[in-house]
């Protein structure tokens, strides 16, 4: 079982897509980076909130689910390119696998991602749905 702190410290990112941006080169990073891979020590990292809109870059439909996700199978996992530039790995929900396609516009929603067993902490965070 994981200590709750492991989840808790990432709440700003998982709830509200708070990433970082290098004000030297304007590149946006999500999840946040503490050093800009472009500018490195010359970069200036500051907080940056992404707005949760984006486009699906690729996806897979998971039939053999890992622990904690068994009851959701089959489900869609995808990589979404957010407006602003950063990419995230995320579930695409409220969408039939046959209706999903590369390039489709998606938006972030707030969902239960996993839980630390029946008695543990519930992990909430972003997932994405088709823009309707």
């Amino acid at each position: 079982m994981a200590a709750a702190a492991r989840f808790w410290r990432k709440i700003p990112q998982r709830y509200n897509l708070i990433g970082t941006k290098c004000s030297a080169c304007n590149k946006v990073y999500f999840p946040p980076r503490y050093i800009c891979p472009v500018c490195r020590r010359a970069g200036k990292i500051e907080e940056f909130k992404l707005d949760g809109k984006g486009e699906l870059v690729t996806y897979a439909v998971i039939y053999i689910a890992p622990r904690g996700f068994e009851s959701q199978a089959p489900y869609i996992i995808g990589i979404v390119e957010l407006d602003g530039g950063a990419r995230v790995t995320t579930q695409i929900v409220d969408c039939d696998p046959k209706d999903v396609e590369i390039g489709m516009p998606v938006k972030a929603v707030f969902r239960k991602v996993n839980e630390d067993g029946e008695s543990g902490v519930i992990y909430y965070g972003y997932k994405f749905t088709p823009m309707r």
């Binding site: 929900v93 969902r111 239960k112 519930i122």
Partner: peptide, 8 residues
Amino acid sequence: GPDEDTIT
């Protein structure tokens, strides 16, 4: 949905 509850 399977990932929705009162909080979400």
